[in-house]
């Protein structure tokens, strides 16, 4: 029972990390970046190669973070900036496009096989915690989700750039008139959120594995977590991710593994019908 709970919390943390990255991309550019999971897994594949060269884990993570951050900058330039002026859901198509290009890159460079990312020997021994078993990597992931969540909240509430970002997404023009350089904010925001994706990607893949076909699936689950928790709410992203992970783990354990995604899907549809703005979400003026 508790083992199932921990399994759910761990996979939920992965979803939460993706949901948090979505929120971050929205906060800096007003556009939801569908490709965050793809950035993570690309980084994981990079880590796989670098670890294979015998580099220390921490160095690998930093290199991956920097490389992915740079990739995110490119993404912002080609997929987000051209849309600025016509305020429609263009990013729905362009960031899916970026995600697809990244998938192709992964296939091209690493092929279609599963790659296991091993962070070190110490990560393989299960721990016992509150009557359930948990892997060390699960603890790391939960910690990462909480840390990223806390940092995002602190950034948004307590820093100048966080404040300007919030202002900018509320009223782009009014922010310009107060000297907010929205373009630079969006570019740096993507760089930072890309670096975060690059850093946590190898950790995520250490739990799952790294393969080109994985990120689109993760992207969908991350979005479901985001909707469950409420678009725009960082606390909601974490809770939504964990809730989704728990539902999945319990459906898998107590119904049948075949139901592990069917049950979350039904839950998702129900939430859309009953509380379309999520459990913690605020009603936005118009989402259509």
């Amino acid at each position: 029972m508790m083992t199932t709970v921990w399994a759910g919390v761990a996979i939920g943390s992965v979803y939460a990390l993706i949901a948090l990255s979505y929120n971050l991309s929205r906060a800096v550019s007003g556009a939801l970046n569908f490709a965050v999971a793809h950035l993570m897994i690309l980084s994981a594949l990079l880590a796989f190669t670098l670890l294979g060269l015998g580099l220390p884990v921490l160095v690998v993570l930093v290199v991956c973070a920097v490389a992915t951050g740079m990739l995110a900058i490119v993404e912002e330039r080609v997929a987000i900036r051209p849309l600025r002026k016509n305020d429609s859901h263009g990013e729905l198509v362009t960031t899916v496009g970026v995600a697809t290009v990244l998938t192709g890159l992964m296939l091209l460079l690493w092929g279609p096989d599963l790659r296991a990312v091993r962070l070190g020997a110490g990560f393989d021994d299960p721990l016992s915690f509150l009557g359930g078993r948990m892997l060390p990597i699960d603890v790391v992931l939960v910690g990462a989700a909480l840390l990223v969540g806390a940092l995002t909240v602190m950034w948004s509430k307590h820093t100048v750039s966080g404040l300007l970002s919030r202002a900018q997404t509320m009223d782009y023009e009014a922010a310009l008139l107060r000297g907010v350089n929205a373009r630079r904010l969006s570019l740096w925001g993507f760089a930072v959120s890309g670096a975060v994706c690059g850093f946590v990607g190898p950790l995520v893949a250490a739990k799952t594995f790294a393969v080109a076909s994985l990120p689109t699936f993760l992207a969908v689950m991350g979005f479901v977590a985001l909707i469950l928790g409420g678009l725009g709410s960082d606390l909601g992203a974490v809770l939504g991710g964990v809730l989704l992970g728990l539902v999945q783990a319990f459906a898998s354990r107590y119904l049948d593994p075949h139901y592990q995604y069917i049950v979350p899907f039904v839950l998702f549809l129900l939430v859309l019908m009953v509380r379309p703005h999520g459990v913690l979400g605020r009603r936005e003026t118009r989402l259509v």
Partner: peptide, 22 residues
């Protein structure tokens, strides 16, 4: 701008701090 285009969901103080940005 006309129509009191302030950042309505931010607090009064946050609005003023944004004003200091330039």
């Amino acid at each position: 701008q006309e129509g009191k285009r302030i950042f309505r969901e931010l607090s009064v103080e946050e609005n003023l701090r944004i004003g200091c940005h330039p």
